[in-house]
Write a protein that binds this DNA or RNA. Structure first.
Length: 216
DNA sequence: AAGTATCC
DNA sequence: ACAT
């Protein structure tokens, strides 16, 4: 019997190679948690969290917003990146410096120097929220990695293969953990299981996820 | 199919 | 499996 949950052992920052092109940076964002939370609040004052609709007509259980030059949106017509927030018609809020420096540093530490993201999705998971297995494939080219930052309540991340039918590994993601995937792993399916209720000293009853991409 | 429902 |  082998363990089926890849989880951090320590509260100290560590770098763990998971698979080719996949690195888990444990607790990497903890030292910036105050700035990150302040900047999430700042972004969401301009571009509030909302539950987007998928092309199939269903609502996503995670509330989302974006910052940076491009934002990811979904509606009945499909998925795309666009410069404007469809809710306001205005440009997405600027990407906070705290976000950018974390994303660049994490990418570099994971072996992807020179990462310059132009899009950051901010997802808010409340108890019951989840996200099914999917690929990030709406970006123009796949040369750059995805950088995913977890804040607040823990959740089980599913990291699959290049085919939906590949059985996903389970990785417990906790506050401050950063996952970076690129190269041969760039199009691997991923998602999260349902968030369980809990209380976190920094985020309360929620988990926030910042996902950085080079979309355009 | 970034969604839900149903069956084995 | 299924629909938009």
């Amino acid at each position: 019997m082998t363990p089926d949950l890849f989880s951090g052992l320590s509260d100290q920052p560590t770098v763990e190679a998971f698979d080719e092109g996949v690195v888990v940076l444990r607790r990497q964002a903890v030292k910036h948690q105050q700035a990150l939370m302040r900047d999430i609040e700042k972004v969401t004052r301009q571009a509030p969290f909302r539950h987007m609709k998928t092309p199939g007509g269903h609502q996503m259980s995670a509330a989302m917003t974006c910052c940076g030059p491009l934002g990811w949106v979904t509606d009945e017509t499909g998925y795309r990146y666009q410069p404007q927030d469809p809710l306001s018609g205005l440009l997405w809020p600027a990407m906070p410096e705290s976000f950018l420096s974390l994303a660049r540093t994490a990418a570099q530490e994971a072996g992807f120097p020179g990462f310059d993201p132009d899009a950051c999705l901010i997802n808010r998971y409340q108890p019951g929220a989840k996200m099914g297995l999917h690929q990030d494939k709406d970006e123009k080219d796949f040369a750059w990695p995805i950088v995913s930052v977890s804040l607040g309540l823990p959740i089980v991340f599913q990291f699959g293969g290049l085919k939906r039918s590949d059985r996903p590994a389970r990785i417990l993601l906790e506050h401050g953990d950063v996952v970076v995937w690129g190269g041969p792993a760039r199009l691997r399916y991923h998602g999260v299981l349902t968030l369980k209720a809990g209380e976190h000293p920094v985020t309360g009853s929620a988990r926030y996820n910042l996902t950085f991409r080079k979309a355009g």
